[in-house]
Design a protein around this nucleic acid. Structure first.
Lengths: 156, 156
DNA sequence: ACCAGATCGTCTGGTACTTTACTAATTCAG
DNA sequence: CTGAATTAGTAAAGTACCAGACGATCTGGT
């Protein structure tokens, strides 16, 4: 069909970059929808899952490793804490940080979170081979490189 | 063999989907940064460029074709209108819609917008062949299909 | 001519996220 | 030990987006 290379020659608002952004939004939306069943949003679910894998962490580390700002991480932790899913406890080694740790109620949510993630991912990869996914991952990393270069040399 | 499928087998917050979302955010940010020189954001620049290509359009059509909600499109148009870049004029054929049309000041911005876009895109495609980009586009479309299927059968 | 349903645009409220500024605690130079 | 610079976390204001509700207008059937 005509669609594909047309897609690449198309005007700015309909090109690969836009498609990529639209896809990202759609994927995010799909995750948000599904996690809504657990009364969680994507950021909250990711944080719970990450805490489960990594053990207690300071907020700054969580922020860095989940790719969000420190302020956002603080909001997410506060929301989870209010529901008793995590707790903030003092760090014996450093008085200005407090370690965020899973509480039992939060740990109980990890399994359904991982299940939802697994199901959605399997739906997403319908008709896409493992090799293709690997190529996609590699390409995205390449894009990432280019982009960080681009962002670096803005002297502005 | 460590690198690639590791990326695919990695935990949720570090997998392809996440990378894709992060990339999309980064690309968006890069566009926002560059268009800031013209005192435009990405949505505004896209709308100007699109109006240039397509001629006057109703807001609903603009919204649909730029992939945003009607309300958002209205805000973008209002912002552009306030600066005299576009105008809303009555549609002779339909009393409830008003056609959004470029004004000279807006038309003058189209060239720099397209230039900025062209430059950023060329920086992004460093080290990525045309064939790879085509594959990427095809893959994204496939993902899009899977996702719309997924969203469709939520009877919830 | 008229009513019912669909569509357009706007407004409101809610969510998510970022930036900036501020407080508190640590570290290190002297 | 004291004071400046650094780092962790919080708080407030601002931006962007979307969904839902609403009034106005068009369409089609009668």
């Amino acid at each position: 069909m005509a669609g594909l290379e047309h897609e690449l020659d198309a005007p700015p608002w309909k090109r690969v970059e836009s498609t990529l952004m639209a896809m990202a939004r759609a994927i995010r939306q799909a995750y948000e929808d599904r996690f809504a069943r657990l009364d969680l949003n994507l950021a909250q679910a990711s944080m719970l899952a990450f805490l489960f894998e990594s053990g207690p962490r300071s907020q700054s580390r969580l922020a860095a490793q989940l790719g969000m700002g420190r302020a956002s991480a603080g909001l997410v932790v506060s929301a989870l804490e209010k529901r008793g899913l995590v707790e903030r406890r003092p760090d014996p080694a450093d008085g200005r940080t407090r370690l965020v740790a899973l509480r039992p109620a939060g740990e109980a949510l990890v399994r359904p979170i991982l299940e939802i993630d697994e199901i959605l991912r399997s739906e997403l990869r319908t008709g896409i081979s493992r090799a293709e996914r690997q190529r996609l991952a590699a390409l995205l990393l390449r894009l990432q490189d280019n982009l960080s270069g681009v962002l670096a040399d803005r002297p502005d």
